[in-house]
Design a protein around this nucleic acid. Sequence first.
DNA 1: TATGAATGAGAATTCATTCAT
DNA 2: CATGAATGAATTCTCATTCAT
Lengths: 197, 197, 197, 197
Amino acid sequence: MTDGRARRRVDTRQRLFEAAVELIAEQGFSATTVDDIAARAGVAKGTVYYNFASKTSLFEELLRHGIGLLTEQFRAAVAGLPPRPALAALVRAQLEYIRRYRAFAQLLLSEMWRTNREWQQTLRLLRAEAIGVIAETVRAGVDAGDLPADLDVQLASSALFGVGLVVAVDWLVFQPDRPVEDVQEALLAIVRRVAHT
Amino acid sequence: MTDGRARRRVDTRQRLFEAAVELIAEQGFSATTVDDIAARAGVAKGTVYYNFASKTSLFEELLRHGIGLLTEQFRAAVAGLPPRPALAALVRAQLEYIRRYRAFAQLLLSEMWRTNREWQQTLRLLRAEAIGVIAETVRAGVDAGDLPADLDVQLASSALFGVGLVVAVDWLVFQPDRPVEDVQEALLAIVRRVAHT
Amino acid sequence: MTDGRARRRVDTRQRLFEAAVELIAEQGFSATTVDDIAARAGVAKGTVYYNFASKTSLFEELLRHGIGLLTEQFRAAVAGLPPRPALAALVRAQLEYIRRYRAFAQLLLSEMWRTNREWQQTLRLLRAEAIGVIAETVRAGVDAGDLPADLDVQLASSALFGVGLVVAVDWLVFQPDRPVEDVQEALLAIVRRVAHT
Amino acid sequence: MTDGRARRRVDTRQRLFEAAVELIAEQGFSATTVDDIAARAGVAKGTVYYNFASKTSLFEELLRHGIGLLTEQFRAAVAGLPPRPALAALVRAQLEYIRRYRAFAQLLLSEMWRTNREWQQTLRLLRAEAIGVIAETVRAGVDAGDLPADLDVQLASSALFGVGLVVAVDWLVFQPDRPVEDVQEALLAIVRRVAHT
DNA sequence: TATGAATGAGAATTCATTCAT
DNA sequence: CATGAATGAATTCTCATTCAT
């Protein structure tokens, strides 16, 4: 039963998520304090601990949530499409996602290639899931002869993911005024060309 | 004969730089403590503060040093070359650099697209310098007709820089066993293709 | 019923004030550590920082609090009295205050005539407030013909304040066994005489 | 034999003394760093330790030097005078001294009534010496019937010393533009009156 | 006689976490 | 379900002192 209390709790968690993503995107995990998060979410500090076991687990849930969402979009994007259009759809989905959740994307870009952090394992797993969708598509492309037979599927997939991330975030951070279509076009052009090999 | 003391001091600073890059690359700036840095450099904690005004300014000098070096390599790489080969030389120089200073590259990837950090301004300036070299080359390519006339030079240059960085670091972190030549080839292939438009 | 928490916090601040005054009176501001203050107040070190922004601002609030109290006593002492008795009442009030808050008086004596400290500005303002009450009384005495017409009101007022402070503290520190009445008598005698000019 | 080296050392010590007095007068002993002192004296930090055993002993020597000088002036002032003029001469000598060595006077005012400091003992002894000269004069006045027979010689002497110090320093700090003669007059007036009892 | 790089103990400050309300 | 005062371990930074040159 969805009573008022339960709804309120969900709201609070959502607000905390949003506050945390923004702050961590801007400053990084360590530089963001629980006080900061509570303040931006407009709740008391104790409330953070009422809703999450620790700062780290808040962050891990955040990663899970954010990357889970991305993976879903990837799956939805490729559903039923042949390799070539599927690849283009993935690029579009990624940009769409980054545009919608820019702070999370920024955060991901900054944390993805770190080593030696507590949540490294979690992150690796989640990354594998998201890139997995790309890899399936690429493999299908190879199998269908749309992509070069000797293509390293793993390398190509992570490169594709990384390139999309860095180009999109760079655009958001350094040239936010340019229309997203430009970026999309540029990226699709690159992908198309590479795919033609 | 140069003063022994001055030499000693330069040595110490160098050791601190090296220790700091490695640690910050792995864990990030905030998660790296001054104690860690001192310990890895094999000096006392006070020595860090004798040589740098603060942890932040140590990091800023580090950025300055590292990006300065990269900019030099970029300049050396393009010196006297026509646009097309110059572009390829830049890609090679960047990979060369990342291979040689992998920790610094990793650190850069993590900090480059953050906002709201104390050294943001410094970083932006340095970034502009390094990408400036790329931009000059791209512009020359456009002027020479080697690159599409309507290419957005700024966007293309940052994208090129970012792509190189993310692909190379991804390779270093996730597939360190693959030969660097593969990565270099893949990148050059992309660049070549885009350039052919 | 008032919030128990708020009361607790006020208590803590009060305890910290008291601990700080004593320690700073004995050793001076710089020689007193935040650890000392917390220990004497019976709280954890973090509590000091939960209640005050910094050691300096704790001290500033302390000055404000202590001198504010003194100013109040001065005002209460002169209320409704004609100049001559008012002057005597001020001397008595100052001694009363110093006897009651000896540590604060000692601290004031040590800090009042320093220059170049962070809280100098605050101190000057507060000093002006307290001495202002004396000055009003002196001026009234001059206007009423009870004091010499050419008396420098400012100089006389600060001198009066300073003399009371130094004589009383000297007594507290070096001859604490002598009854306060002696000191009071001696001071009043001086003031009376000077006033007779 | 006064060769160049010895003279240089004396110079250095003198410069360090002066630098230290000024800084400690402004900020207090603990807040003044050895670095500060060396910098203001225009020598390297090591030089401080070449000339003095420690920061504390530099300060103790300073106290000894400064109060010794004051005691000498007191002795010279009263030499051969009968009680009443001797007392006036002491007041003049003190003001003279404070005008000449204002920083030292300020320092003394701030440290004189502290308790619990390392050099407390030294300070007490030196204080007793200086005030001793005043006490001798007061006693002579009492014996000669110039001062009330029941006067507490100790209390009166320290009060006299303290009053002179605080009034003069207050003038130096808060009204440095007023001519010293005003202050001298005011003080002498007080003393004269009290002496008339 | 003087220097200044290096030290490390200690001081100020921060912050994730707990817990009584 | 939420709060915010309190905590103390960890962190940044300071500074008197040492010592090789």
